[in-house]
Computed example of a mutant assay.
Amino acid sequence: MDLNAVRTFVVAVDAGQFQKAAADLSLTQQAVSKRVAALEAELGVRLFTRTARGAELTIDGQAFLPHARTLLRAAERAAASVRPGSRALRVDVVGRRVATGGLVRDFHRAYPDIELDVVTLFGGDRAIDAVESGTIDATFRAVLMPGRRLPDDIEAVPVLDEPLQLVTGPAHALAGEQSVTPAQLAGCRIWMPGNDPGTEWAAYYDELAAAFGFTVEATGPNFGVEALLDTIGGSSTLGTFLSERTPLVWPAGYDLRRIPMRDPTPVYPHSLLWRNDNSHPALATLRRYLISAYPGRPAAGVWTPEWAQPAGPAPPEAG
């Protein structure tokens, strides 16, 4: 159905005359008559009768009017849902309890008037495809994983280096250490059941393990963080990794140890990815906020895979 014709019909009803409707729509009276006639032909009924006082609705016109108004409201809502600035900024954070979820919460506290739609997509390939297709506005990911080249229309900028901690139960051989080096983990078993092959985090931890000689085990189903910590707390041989920024509460009886890692500190490198033609104003605000808060990666003292090194300085921000 031609929405311009429907809009002309509604304006003509409200105006009471085709002549006044033409003025309100900046059209000629002939154009208004043609639009209404085309709508009547499509519906197969007369919507108006002409009288000395102007145009009056027929019974069919009266029946159609509320539906015509609903159509126009629906069209406006549909346009608003994709109009930059009038819809929520849709951001993928991998997980709501991980550090990138915290970044988005900090951004929301700084800009409470910006509406956000926070989602969690599984895997970098799916997230990048969603950015490229416009399903989401931005994602936080570790780039570039081996064999993955960003599409030409996707940009990325580093926004967070997330230091890792070793987590053990009280009976583990390293439980009493104030800090550990990655080299001390040689021969250790690190249990991470969520390390699904093909994901960027699996690629990261596999390379970390190869660099320092420990084993990452991803056996068994992933029942979540609580089940993971339950197992780690009762084991003398298994450890796992968590971010120092990951907020967790566990029962006191677990007596888990979060041990900082030093010389070098493994950091998980998060970048913000977005499509370079995305004009949502809140996206530009998010980029400026994250770039200004990122201190930059030190030249020494941290470890990341070569494929995760920043390619260069952040792109200049307009405004």
Rank of each mutant, 00 (worst) to 15 (best):
D113H: 13
V302C: 08
E226I: 10
A23E: 14
P66K: 01
R149M: 11
I291Y: 03
S133L: 04
V32C: 07
L229M: 15
L185D: 14
A74D: 11
G101A: 00
N4V: 05
A218Y: 05
G102P: 07
W250I: 03
D152R: 01
V104C: 12
G134K: 01
L290Q: 02
T199S: 09
S243H: 09
R7N: 15
Q165M: 07
S81A: 10
L229N: 11
V11Y: 04
D137K: 12
M192C: 08
I136T: 06
I114A: 04
V119M: 03
V143I: 11
E42R: 06
L116R: 01
G233C: 14
R141V: 07
A210W: 04
V93M: 01
A175M: 06
R77A: 15
Q19L: 06
I190K: 03
D106E: 10
L160C: 12
H280V: 06
A311C: 06
V36N: 15
A12I: 07
E200R: 10
G224E: 05
A209P: 13
P66A: 02
L89P: 14
I128D: 10
F140P: 06
W307E: 12
G134W: 01
A293Q: 15
S33E: 01
T28A: 06
C188M: 15
A218M: 07
Q29L: 02
G296A: 09
F214H: 09
P295F: 02
V302I: 14
F214D: 05
V249I: 10
H108E: 14
G198T: 02
P281E: 00
D230N: 10
L273R: 03
D263E: 14
G319A: 11
V180T: 08
